[in-house]
């Protein structure tokens, strides 16, 4: 089978779409005044991120990103929003010296950005590995149960504590009169 004439352009276009979704979604999440649109932006960003994982040879991680971040995390956030927030755009800033505060925030974020940029430009980068593993389920499973078995077990302990905590909080409101 001879290769498709514009294959490189197609691949580049798909990569550009993935990058665009990630950045665009993040911008929506950060700039939107309606919280529900912010969550939608987060969701778009996660889908784009899944595309980037795919380009990094980790299809398993890409699908997990969608399954967990879009299918679970974003849904939970929206659910939390529904139970608490009326869907109104944010009103005028009530706080005094709002401009002063936002100027300060801008200065701090510019400083952080400059620091990170300086670090990433001057820091010693290790050469990117060509292919750590084939990114298959088998490879991920093997490394989870050998090299990274301690973090894996610790995460399960954290989740157990979270479940117990949720139970304790939910139980206290349900005492029988």
């Amino acid at each position: 089978m001879k290769p498709f004439p514009f294959a490189d352009y197609l691949v580049f276009a798909i990569f550009a779409v993935a990058v665009g979704l990630t950045v665009g979604g993040a911008l929506i999440a950060a700039l939107s005044t309606r919280i529900i649109r912010g969550v939608s932006g987060l969701m778009i960003s996660c889908v784009g991120l899944a595309g980037l994982y795919y380009f990094l040879n980790s299809p398993f991680l890409a699908l997990m990103e969608i399954l967990i971040y879009v299918g679970a995390v974003c849904v939970t956030i929206v659910f939390g929003v529904m139970l608490s927030e009326p869907d109104e755009p944010a009103g005028e800033e009530k706080r005094r010296h709002a401009r002063l505060w936002s100027g300060g925030a801008l200065a701090v974020s510019a400083l952080v950005f400059a620091g990170v940029a300086w670090l990433s430009l001057h820091g010693p980068w290790t050469a990117p590995a060509k292919l750590v593993s084939d990114g298959s389920v088998r490879a991920v499973g093997l490394s989870l149960l050998t090299t990274y078995s301690l973090p894996f077990e610790l995460i399960s302990a954290v989740l157990l504590v979270a479940i117990l905590g949720a139970l304790v909080i939910a139980r206290s409101g349900r005492t029988k009169e």
Binding site: M43, P59, F60, I66, G71, C74, V78, V137
Partner: peptide, 19 residues
């Protein structure tokens, strides 16, 4: 990883109905 593919994209459905 077709099975995982189906489930991960299937999970978007909830989000869409909710929105």
């Amino acid at each position: 990883i077709g099975l995982l593919f189906v489930f991960s994209f299937g999970s978007i459905n909830v989000m869409a109905l909710m929105l």
